[in-house]
Computed example of a mutant assay.
Amino acid sequence: MNIELDEKQIIDKVIGDLKRHNLLTEQAQNVTVNYIADDQDVLYTIAETAKIMKTNTSYVYKLVNAGLIPVLKLGSYKIRKTSLGEFLAKYEGKDLTDPSHIVELEVSKIE
């Protein structure tokens, strides 16, 4: 079972638990957290994505054209950080050498 939580969900859960169990002082009962998302690098260019994946831009375009990584166009193509993370998690353990023919990695053959 995979459970994925972002930082805001974790913070909200902890504060909720503290309030529920009366572990906050009376003055702190009205505590709120102004969560500021890490807005740096929320969108990656194709080149940035290639660098993160340690590959080249042509290969990233192949993955995009195969429909494996969603993009949006804001002047140039951008890939959401979350979309890249989802792609990497979904295809872990797969051989994506040919994006149109994805196969399981044969770990026993890795040299």
Rank of each mutant, 00 (worst) to 15 (best):
L68H: 04
V14E: 14
L72V: 13
I3P: 04
K62R: 14
T82A: 05
D95E: 03
L43C: 03
V42C: 06
Y61P: 02
T49E: 00
S58F: 08
E104D: 15
P70G: 04
Q9L: 04
Y59S: 04
K51N: 08
I15P: 00
S83W: 10
E48I: 06
I10W: 00
S83Q: 11
S108C: 04
A37V: 11
L63G: 00
G67L: 07
S76R: 15
I11H: 03
Y91N: 00
I10H: 03
T97L: 08
D17T: 12
E7R: 10
S83A: 14
D39N: 12
L63P: 01
N2Q: 14
M53H: 03
V64D: 04
L88R: 15
D17Y: 05
R20I: 10
K62Y: 11
I69H: 00
V71R: 01
K51V: 01
S83M: 03
F87I: 09
Q40S: 12
T55Y: 02
N2W: 13
G93H: 06
K78S: 07
L105Q: 15
L43Y: 12
I52W: 01
E86D: 14
T32C: 05
I52V: 13
V42Y: 05
N65R: 09
K109M: 12
I3N: 13
K13C: 09
L23C: 08
V107Q: 10
D41T: 07
G85D: 12
T97K: 13
F87D: 00
R80Q: 12
L23V: 05
D17A: 10
E7F: 07
V33W: 01
L72Q: 10
D39A: 05
G67A: 07
K73S: 05
K73E: 04
A37W: 08
N56M: 08
N22W: 06
S58W: 03
Y35C: 04
A28H: 10
D39T: 09
L84M: 12
A50D: 08
K51Y: 03
E86N: 14
S83V: 08
L96R: 09
V103L: 09
T55W: 02
I110Y: 10
S58C: 11
H21L: 15
V31Y: 11
S83D: 15
I102S: 10
F87H: 06
V60L: 04
D39K: 06
L23K: 09
N2R: 14
Q27N: 08
K19G: 06
D38M: 00
I102C: 11
T97S: 13
